[in-house]
Design a protein around this nucleic acid. Structure first.
Length: 198
DNA sequence: GGCCCGATACTCT
DNA sequence: GAGTATCGGGCCC
């Protein structure tokens, strides 16, 4: 039972990326697909901040793929990784500055039956990774560039007034290739909630 | 439980 | 043509 139905406004995303990444933990990502709510609490995020960040896709400047990251905050930056997996990010900071938060894991809360059918995996692996959660919530390239703050958006974040009891952890970003130089490789820009039993 | 490795397609050099 | 913000199967403890 949702404790609130208010959506995270654009002002939430128009802040420092590290702040947004931390504050997104415990909030709810919702995709209304086929008339059903597919939703989960955000339990892991990762920040990618600006052209100087050598792990950020915008490190080579503005290209066709990264143009969305230079746009207004609150929009979805979705891209295909390894030719197989869609990864969902939310654009942050002011328009013109390329930065985003990667949503890396969710705790599924609504639409479990749909997610199980889509994933064909144990419940603990429905959305426990960036490629897994997009498959579970039916998020793909068609969502690239969509405004998550639009009143009629089918994909959006909801405010959770009672986040789950969990320990907050920060650590280095995951999955960066060896090509990523220091200090960017070890910046603790990965944030997660360690839930008691999982 | 762990490690290794192939899949697969898109972006930019 | 190389590299990639991953996943899951196969294999071996």
């Amino acid at each position: 039972m949702p404790t609130s139905t208010s959506r995270l406004p654009r002002a939430f995303f128009a802040r420092a990326t590290l702040t947004v990444a931390r504050d997104l933990l415990g909030q709810r990502l919702v995709h209304v697909a086929g008339g059903r709510r597919l939703a989960g609490l955000v339990i892991e995020t990762e920040a990618y901040i600006g052209q100087n960040d050598q792990a950020c896709h915008a490190r080579a400047g503005r290209t066709r793929r990264t143009a969305v990251m230079y746009g207004p905050p609150g929009h979805a930056y979705v891209y295909l990784n390894y030719g197989i997996h869609w990864l969902l990010n939310v654009v942050t900071e002011r328009e013109g500055f390329p930065a985003a938060v990667l949503i890396r894991a969710l705790l599924p809360t609504e639409g479990l039956a749909v997610m199980r059918a889509r994933r064909q995996r144990p419940d603990g692996e429905l959305a426990s990774g960036p490629g897994k959660l997009t498959q579970a919530l039916a998020i793909d390239g068609s969502h690239h560039g969509v405004d998550l703050c639009a009143p009629d958006a089918a994909l959006f974040f909801e405010t959770v007034t009672q986040p789950p009891a969990a320990q907050f952890l920060a650590g280095p970003r995951v999955g960066l290739g060896k090509a990523t130089p220091e200090p960017w490789l070890s910046r603790p820009w990965n944030f997660r909630l360690a839930l008691p039993a999982g």
